[in-house]
C-alpha cells in the first residue's frame, strides 16, 4: 500500500491550514491504518502544518505511506529556528498575541509532534528554512 502525497501549504491562509492533514487522515483511514496510529500521525502533521503557516509563511509537505510506517517531511523557507532545544520545550513560543487569539501559540506544537511520533528530526538554518521529518510506525 505504498502511497506518496504532496501538498503545498499557503502561508497566507490560516482558514485553510489543516486541510492537508485532514486529507492525509482520510487517506490513512481509507487504507485501513489502525485509528490510534491515524490519530497520532494526523495530530503531529497538523501541528507542523499550523507551524508552517504561523511561523514560516507556508511550505511543502511530502507524506510517504509505507506498509510499516508513515513518513512526513515538512519543508519551509521561513526564518529557521535559532535554538531548537529551547523551541522544543513545552510552553516556549514566539507566536504573537494575534496567533494566541486564534487558539494557537501555547508552545505545545513541537513537543506534541515529538510525543505523537516515533521519531522526529529537525533540520533548520536561520534565514534559510526548516525541514522537519517525522515517522510514525504502523506495526
Amino acid at each position: 500500500m505504498n502511497k506518496r502525497l504532496h501538498y503545498v501549504i499557503d502561508g497566507d491562509d490560516f482558514t485553510s491550514a489543516g486541510q492537508a492533514s485532514g486529507d492525509v487522515k482520510k487517506v490513512l483511514k481509507t487504507l485501513g491504518v489502525p485509528s490510534e496510529i491515524v490519530r497520532k500521525a494526523s495530530i503531529a502533521m497538523y501541528e507542523g502544518e499550523i507551524n508552517m503557516v504561523i511561523h514560516a509563511d507556508g511550505g511543502v509537505i511530502d507524506v510517504d505511506i509505507m506498509p510499516d510506517r508513515i513518513v512526513m517531511a515538512l519543508k519551509d523557507s521561513g526564518p529557521g529556528i535559532p535554538n531548537v532545544e529551547e523551541a522544543m520545550q513545552a510552553g516556549f513560543s514566539t507566536a504573537p498575541d494575534t496567533i494566541r487569539n486564534l487558539g494557537f501559540g501555547a508552545g505545545m506544537g513541537l513537543p506534541n509532534m515529538k510525543k505523537y511520533t516515533d521519531s522526529m528530526e529537525i533540520d533548520t538554518k536561520v534565514g534559510v528554512g526548516t525541514t522537519i521529518t517525522m515517522t510514525v510506525k504502523i506495526v
Binding site: F14, T15, A17, G18, S21, G22, K25, R39, S42, I43, Y46, I50, L102, G103, F104
Partner: peptide, 11 residues
C-alpha cells in the same frame, strides 16, 4: 474559527 473543527477532526 475553522481551526476548532480541524482540531476536533484530528482528535
Amino acid at each position: 474559527n475553522p481551526q476548532v473543527v480541524r482540531t476536533a477532526e484530528m482528535m
